[in-house]
Design a protein around this nucleic acid. Structure first.
Length: 814
RNA sequence: GCCCCGAUAGCCCAACCGGCAGAGGCAAUGGUCUCAAACACCAUCCAGUGUGGGUUCGAAUCCCACUCGGGGCACCA
């Protein structure tokens, strides 16, 4: 009887002793592979989601290790962040303590889960030895003009009393407390990711076919490059003209009004002193109270205020009214637009509300029905553009504007700079000192890290400003430049900064004279395989790509993209929906492990379907997995030949089956079809069982070859069972490094294949033919078949399609 | 509203370039073993690929339209 729990207890200490997955020993000559799982957040013990992710990553890491690679497969903890801080407030404990306890628990669970991690390369981002280098990198960016402070409207949670990152705002609400998020004007630190917009977009060409298409698409949309033109409009009664951005300069003759973002400085300036000022001020107040929820409402009517001012359309000199409205965004383009209601739906809706003229300047097709026509067509009512199609008209207009100095071709991005300030305690302090004379002064490198002041004695409760402000001894310092009294910046960094370069730190996690080892980076990077959830499709992956490009510019790395291949595993759900306590459909990993054992859970995860798909735990069968493992294990006890027996003397057809299933399994791993790998392993188990019971018998050397292949294949998903089999087969640990089963290519060649003969697409006969039969030979053979003659029933033959060696289709005349 | 992905047996899933729809599993049924059962082993059962059209000698696979499900973005001018 196969006792899963006893086997687990047996092998854990053995593996600790051997440390089979220690990577990068100096004398190791194997070729390198860097396989990385996204590091976890230490919020409690591992759950089903971790179990799936690490099972998938392990298949890849263990496969390459078996294939003879020096695989680096490290793990660490993304250990700064709100959950620790909130738990600290709730339970009145130090977030550091809470974090370290959870890390210890997760680490123990990972070890038991038999992840092939290199335990000599662990890190945690809340360690000053780690975040010191966040600070160092921040200062580097500051000195290169890539980190800067600006005053801007940011997401604000009135309950948590902090700014929120875009990703923490879900459908207009705070993901943590569900409060409706508002906007607040604050001076915050930003990283200038927009400087890299083009490279972030263009370098994606390298990732094509290696990252999920979906992720590439999401990144492209997020960056949102658009091309068009900037056009300068003179403003009646204002010395300075105003520039707008448009993707449709060809429709300039149809611009019948002008809109500025109501919350922009320009709107306030234009409204000042006009009869509209009162109305404008009231409007701005009103929209400030509007939340993202309101903005998300579909077919929300357009609102705005006429400012009693006019702009001059540069192409025809027409005076057009200026409105302030909230449908124009202050932080995209120039915060002002020319409105062309005939060809932009939003402008059309606004024109309808305010009864503004609509001038068609692109002829829609005769059968077109709708309000604003955005498609292609000949220009009309447009003077020198008349008759030109859209693309030509855009070029012509840009040329016309450039000649007169009224505008130019321009590019815009949806991507905004990355706001990294957080008014929270449990994060990396921003290493800046504010000096009344010198301004923003970076903390000198030799004074890093700026460590967090002890949590004890600080009020961590959210109150709108950073808790660090309460640590007077910590805040008050001398300016490193001029020596006079100055204050530290009290905000901490977004934890996405921590995760933007951690993969480089693994190369030498204890390095003290730099963030990472530049030489090691040359050897190991970029990462061959990154594995993680699709929830990070945009932010984490985009930020990491950005950091690597900055590091490339700094000359610290010689590559542009950190993650060569990316696999997004799905989620584990229960009865069709995400697991949650409130829904009452939570499946506890510890329960599953206790019930069925580690191997069964891992096998269930991997076998459930393609790795990218969600697993519905209600649809799968861990107990079935357990049965299969016992069935595989039994094989190892049935083999009676000695280890090392010459397998080439074994039964040929069994050896062919082994070769075929091993080969199929390898191909399946390399194309991420891990469920198919498991299916092929099961197939081989069935074949071997049959060979032992009713075939060549347990003593045939091919049976040993088959059982050993099963152990190796199984080691990708079920390391305990595989190790136990390996031992019962007479070997010493560890199967994980025993090498992928060798396949003699000669065994993959079949001496005969079944050729299907169809008449009018219907199968009428099957022929055993040589795999390299010629087309003419096969045609004759097929035509000679009595079944074919019968099916034709005397009808004439129109064509014969011959696809040697697998198919012949005879098409009769009609 | 726009964009992307998916739909194959009762269920989860396979099927390389278009070429016999079935590799694997769950469930079910029957049998062997057993005093009986569990386990194990053996065997059987089951769909013509969401719907409608098209291309082709031939379509799960390619094209068009639609239905359902999932996801992303959401006033980005």
């Amino acid at each position: 009887m196969y006792d899963v729990h006893a086997v687990q207890e047996k092998w854990l200490p053995v593996w600790d002793e051997i440390a089979p997955f220690r990577s990068g020993r100096p004398d190791d000559t194997r070729p390198r592979k860097y396989v990385l799982d996204m590091f976890p957040y230490p919020s409690g013990d591992l759950h089903m989601g971790h179990a799936e992710a690490y099972a998938m990553g392990d298949v890849i890491a263990r496969y390459w290790a078996l294939k003879g690679f020096n695989v680096m497969h490290p793990i660490g903890w993304d250990s700064f962040g709100l959950p620790a801080e909130n738990a600290a407030i709730k339970n009145n404990v130090d977030p550091a303590l809470w974090t370290d306890e959870n890390i210890a628990q997760q680490k123990a669970s990972m070890r038991r889960y038999a992840c092939s991690f290199d335990w000599d390369r662990v890190l945690q981002t809340s360690d000053p030895a780690y975040y010191r280098w966040n600070q160092w990198l921040f200062v580097q960016m500051f000195e290169r003009g890539l980190a800067y402070r600006k005053d801007s409207a940011v997401n604000w949670c009135p309950t948590c009393q902090t700014v929120l990152a875009n990703e923490q705002v879900v459908a207009g609400r705070c993901e943590r407390c569900d409060s409706v998020v508002t906007k607040r004007k604050l001076t915050q630190w930003y990283l200038k990711i927009t400087d890299y917009a083009d490279r972030l977009l263009d370098d994606m060409a390298q990732l094509e076919g290696k990252w999920p298409e979906k992720v590439l698409l999401m990144q492209r949309n997020w960056i949102g490059r658009s091309t068009g033109a900037e056009v300068t409009f003179a403003i009646d009664g204002r010395a300075e003209p105003v520039t707008v951005y448009t993707t449709r300069p060809d429709t300039l003759f149809g611009a019948t009004f002008f809109v500025v973002a109501a919350d922009s400085a320009l709107a306030a300036e234009l409204a000042a002193g006009t009869p509209s000022e009162g109305e404008f001020t009231a409007y701005v107040e009103r929209i400030k109270a509007d939340s993202d929820i309101d903005r998300l409402a579909t077919d929300r009517p357009k609102t705005g205020v006429f400012l009693n001012r006019h702009a001059i359309n540069p192409v025809n000199g027409a005076l057009i009214p200026i409105y302030a409205a909230d449908y124009v965004l202050a932080d995209y383009g120039t915060g002002a637009i020319m409105a062309v209601p005939a060809h932009d739906q939003r402008d059309f809706e606004f024109a309808k509300v305010f009864d503004l003229p609509v001038v068609t300047v692109v002829e829609p097709p005769a059968d077109w029905e709708g309000e604003a026509y955005a498609g292609d067509g000949p220009a009309v009512n447009s003077d020198f553009l008349n008759g030109l199609r859209k693309a030509e008209a855009i070029d012509a207009m840009i040329a016309w504007l450039e000649e007169r100095g009224l505008g130019k071709g321009a590019v815009n991005y949806r991507l905004r700079d990355w706001l990294i300030s957080r008014q929270r305690y449990w994060g990396t302090p921003i290493p800046i000192i504010h000096c009344p004379s010198c301004g923003e002064v970076p903390v000198p490198a030799d004074q890093l890290p700026v460590t967090l002041p002890p949590a004890e004695g600080l009020d961590l409760k959210p109150k709108g400003t950073s808790p660090l402000g309460g640590a007077a001894d910590w805040v008050n310092v001398d300016c490193p430049r001029c020596g006079q009294a100055a204050k530290r910046d009290t905000d901490t960094m977004d934890t996405f900064v921590d995760s933007s370069w951690y993969f480089l730190r693994y190369l030498d996690p204890n390095k003290t004279d730099g963030p990472f080892d530049v030489e090691q980076a040359r050897e190991w990077m970029p990462i061959d395989q990154y594995v993680g959830g699709v929830t990070h499709a945009i932010l984490h992956l985009l930020y990491s790509r950005f950091f690597v490009k900055v590091l490339n510019d700094m000359g610290m790395v010689d590559f542009n993209e950190p993650f060569t291949r990316l696999l997004n595993q799905g989620m584990v759900v229960m009865n069709g929906s995400a697991m949650s306590k409130s829904r009452g459909n939570l499946v506890r990993l510890t329960d599953e492990l206790a019930e069925n054992g580690v191997d069964s859970v891992r096998l269930t995860m991997v076998f459930a379907g393609p790795p990218e798909d969600d697993i519905d735990w209600a649809d799968v069968s861990p107990s079935g997995a357990k049965k299969f493992l016992a069935r595989a294990w039994r094989l190892s006890g049935d083999v009676t030949s000695a280890p090392g027996v010459d397998v080439t003397t074994g039964d040929l057809s069994l050896r062919q089956a082994v070769a075929r299933t091993v080969d199929d399994a390898a191909k399946a791993v390399e194309s991420y079809r891990f469920n198919v790998t498991v299916a092929k392993t099961m197939e081989l188990v069935n074949i071997t069982r049959k060979a032992i019971d009713s075939g060549v018998g347990p003593s045939d050397p091919a049976v040993r070859e088959a059982a050993e292949a099963v152990a190796k294949m199984l080691s990708l998903v079920a390391p305990y069972t595989a190790e136990e089999m390996w031992e019962r087969l007479g070997h010493t640990p560890t199967v994980a490094l025993s090498g992928w089963p060798e396949v003699d290519p000669a065994l993959l060649v079949q001496e005969s294949v079944v050729c299907v003969v169809q008449v009018a697409g219907k199968v009428r006969d099957r022929l055993d033919v040589s795999p390299d039969i010629s087309e003419t030979e096969l045609r004759e053979l097929a035509l000679a078949s009595p079944a074919v003659t019968a099916a034709l029933a005397g009808a004439s033959i129109r064509t014969v399609i011959v696809r040697p060696p697998s198919l012949v289709n005879i098409v009769p005349g009609s």
